[in-house]
Design a protein around this nucleic acid. Sequence first.
DNA 1: ACTATTAATCGTAATATTGCAATAAAGTAA
DNA 2: TTACTTTATTGCAATATTACGATTAATAGT
Lengths: 109, 109
Amino acid sequence: MGLAKTEMFTDLQNEIALFAKAFGHPARVAILQHLFKLNSCVCGDLVNEIGLAQPTISQHLKELKLLGLIKGNVEGTSVCYCINSDNWTIMKEVMSRFLDQDLSKADCC
Amino acid sequence: MGLAKTEMFTDLQNEIALFAKAFGHPARVAILQHLFKLNSCVCGDLVNEIGLAQPTISQHLKELKLLGLIKGNVEGTSVCYCINSDNWTIMKEVMSRFLDQDLSKADCC
DNA sequence: ACTATTAATCGTAATATTGCAATAAAGTAA
DNA sequence: TTACTTTATTGCAATATTACGATTAATAGT
């Protein structure tokens, strides 16, 4: 079916899954790493840096923007993208709480 | 095409994406949370806890096991699953390095 | 107005993921 | 052995994701 039954999970579980899905493709990881490295970046630079076609990059940027992890600003004919630090921090806290669970009683089988 | 062109990305980018994909579905998030809460769990308990069919849970468990995030041990007719703390720690470090990048120069557009 | 540049959108093809019924496998107990 | 319990596997249908060519905006420069 390919359809995640979101209604049977908690809001937190769905939120974690949504954030994680954003990082679930190497192109989006590469885009975010590039934005961190350069602090800001126009879409065209990403097309050159990463080897994907312009519509593909544009689509990945749209998803990241929709999630709020990046911002985009029109500058003439090009569009400047950068990390949205407020939302990135929120996301980081949600993910960290999930990743930093107590491991002291793991490995029990 | 639905095919991630892994060869055009770095090993780290692909690794981050693979780990993130594991958390990219609320059912797998729920399974992992449950394993952390109870320290160990038989598959049947997860089927009851989460509202998905047994083959579906079994499939999600298989993916998590393949990635190394959980272990499974046969105990009679049932199978006990638990977190693999070594691999979880490795994954956590990879993800943390990605999430904890410098935000001081973000929001520039 | 015309042209060039850049990014977004549309349409579509290919592949991946999710979910489950049916079945198989593996163990336990009588 | 037979019946029972539990989990894995298979096969398949439905949906999601990824990628890109073609096209469409939107802006800038002439």
